[in-house]
Design a protein around this nucleic acid. Structure first.
Length: 559
RNA sequence: GCCCCAGUAGCUCAGUUGGAUAGAGCAGCGGUUUCCUAAACCGCAGGUCGCGGGUUCGAGUCCCGCCUGGGGCCCCA
């Protein structure tokens, strides 16, 4: 096998080599003709075991009726040697260990530099249309810290999927049609009237945060007393203006976190475009709608749910669930996404089974809808827990955190935890540790390389002709090995849809670079070696920058 | 009561989908700068992987039970 377009990753190449070796051993009658179990090659934890290892013999032993070590020996003997592989060995109790050729490793630096920005891309998605919808917080208040998590997960996932060859759209659903926005508008209008000295009470369940008062002030400044006698509970313009301003605020907050959405989808538009009616009609046509107790129900119990769910209240108003059914109808039928990924907080987990049931009731394979649930964040100031409630007005805003610790540190923090894990966010600690945040460790490696390249510019003419075969130091090879993991990581994240390994990788890559820096003088009197090492440093800079950018962070040249 | 998630070093968390001697960051202790960025590097210390059973060549990882914490079980979103 030669290096080329067909090879996704060296890991993949080795998996192919193993499969071919088994097939040859079977032809030769040395192994029984058995169907092979799934057995991806893995990375041995200890360097003396090589770069990659197959555990296939261990999995095959019972069915083959032979000792694992013996099978490992047979497979190792049948592996076709390639320029990339230096050695193949059987090791007890039944591993097949592969060691990469150092000459081949060194040559990969040229490949990485040639690939440039596209190093790390893997042909997995093949242009499939994927939508990632995340955050989608109600436009009834500023974004809270809690939304930072969905933001980091969703945005990073979208970036990684794009790198993996998917056609990705980021989407924010603006809930501009529900009862929450009505309560919000009522509160806003009450505040507005109060600003003109009227004795008006805020409604029950009102949004008592000061930001509503500020917003009312803005409306007064912009429109004067125009809406003062606009009717009850609020004039429609106040509702719309309020939502609009709130959405703009949210957009600003998201921009401050480095997120750009492709689509801002209005819930209200589902009712104007006729999508809602079409979705309900399809559901009815397929026999999943029933009427009882004066309401319209989704017969989810026929799909294995423990109960039915209301679509249209007896008052005639659709529920949030009905909106969401129509919304997903739009995603799959109108816009025809191959795959839809919704990122929700754990407080919505109860909504997952019925949403999946609804999608399948619409006739869509429920596998095409992936709902990622992330656990909630507990916010503390020191030892004191902060209850976050938009309505009560006790909010720790995302903006507040960004302003204090910076977007890069915030993004890094949010994306580093697995979605399934609960998260403690201590604001005091975040401030104190912002300078200790590992993101700076990664960024520093990038800045260090930029410094070296600038330094070299004055001494070494150019290093495009650098001969990378001169790279043979352990630290150099370790850095190259680390970089070659990058495409594997992209592939792995695109499959698992769990972005949290990315920051860990970035730290490891930075460590490999710092170690190389300590042990290998880059710019020295040895011009040939300098050029080779400059090329290696430039490659590392590329990969660091890309890892950071995938997480929505900056890659500074100076710190 | 039922369902989902978690419990790993003092703290915050990873753990390659069941593999070889369980790791990182921070905190603690000690060391490294005539030299491209010391926001770095090297070393030391720190563990009954919540508890108890089970599955098998092999379990932090899978199954069962229990304990603790978070979330859910509305004609709320």
């Amino acid at each position: 096998m030669t290096r080329g377009e067909l090879s996704r990753t060296i890991k993949h190449d080795i998996e192919v080599l193993v499969a071919e070796a088994v097939a040859k051993a079977q032809e030769a009658g040395e192994l029984p003709a058995l169907a092979l179990p799934e057995s991806p090659v893995e990375r041995p934890p200890r360097p003396e075991h090589g770069d990659y290892a197959s555990t296939l013999p261990l999995r095959l032993a019972r069915a083959a009726g032979a000792a694992p070590l013996e099978i490992a020996g047979i497979i190792a003997r049948h592996v076709q040697p390639t320029e990339a592989i230096a050695s193949v060995e059987a090791a007890p109790p039944g591993f097949v260990n592969f060691r990469l050729s150092e000459a081949w490793l060194a040559a990969q630096v040229d490949a990485i530099v040639a690939a440039g920005e596209s190093f790390g891309d893997v042909p997995l998605g093949l242009g499939q249309k994927v939508q990632v919808e995340f955050v989608s917080a109600n436009p009834t208040g500023p974004l809270t810290v809690a939304t930072g998590r969905g933001l980091a997960i969703g945005d990073t996932l979208a970036s990684v999927l794009a790198a993996a060859g998917y056609q990705v759209e980021r989407e924010y659903l603006v809930n501009d049609a529900g009862t929450q926005t009505e309560t919000f508008a009522s509160t806003l209008y009450a505040r507005y009237q109060q600003l003109f000295g009227r004795e008006v009470e805020v409604p029950a369940g009102a949004y008592t945060g000061d930001y509503v008062v500020d917003l009312a002030g803005e409306i007064r400044d912009d429109y004067g007393d125009k809406f003062l006698d606009g009717g009850q509970p609020y004039p429609p313009e106040v509702h719309d203006i309020g939502i609009q301003k709130m959405v703009r605020l949210i957009q600003d907050d998201l921009a401050a976190m480095g997120v750009r959405y492709d689509v801002w989808f209005s819930e209200h538009s589902l009712y104007q475009s006729g999508t809602y009616e079409k979705a309900m009609a399809l559901l009815k046509e397929r026999g999943f709608v029933s009427e009882k107790e004066g309401a319209v129900w989704f017969a989810s119990s026929t799909l294995g749910e423990d109960k039915d769910n209301v679509l249209v209240r007896s008052s005639g108003r659709p529920t949030y669930f009905a909106s969401d059914v129509a919304y997903h109808y739009d995603k799959f039928f109108v816009r025809a996404f191959d795959r839809v990924i919704d990122v929700w907080g754990a407080d919505h987990q109860g909504h997952v089974p019925r949403m999946k049931a609804a999608v399948s009731a619409l006739g869509v394979d429920p596998e095409r809808l992936v709902i990622i649930i992330h656990q909630l964040i507990t916010i503390r100031r020191g030892s004191q827990e902060v209850r976050v409630s938009k309505r009560a007005g006790d909010i720790v805003t995302l903006r507040e955190v960004v302003d204090e610790v910076g977007p890069d540190a915030a993004r890094f923090f949010f994306v580093t935890r697995a979605a399934d894990s609960h998260m403690d966010f201590d604001i005091d600690l975040a401030q104190r540790q912002s300078a200790e945040n590992p993101v700076y460790y990664v960024q520093y490696a990038h800045a260090r390389i930029a410094g070296i390249l600038a330094h070299a510019q004055e001494r070494v003419a150019d290093f495009v002709d650098g001969d990378v075969s001169l790279l043979s130091h352990e630290a150099e090879l370790a850095l190259i090995r680390r970089m070659l993991q990058f495409p594997e990581l992209i592939e792995s994240i695109a499959l698992s849809l769990e972005p949290h390994p990315l920051p860990y990788y970035a730290m490891d890559l930075a460590t490999s670079f710092h170690d190389f820096y300590e042990k290998c003088r880059v710019v020295s009197d040895d011009v040939a070696l300098s050029k080779a090492r400059l090329k290696l440093a430039a490659a590392a800079k590329l990969v660091l920058a890309r890892a950071l950018r995938l997480m929505g962070m900056t890659a500074p040249d100076r710190m």
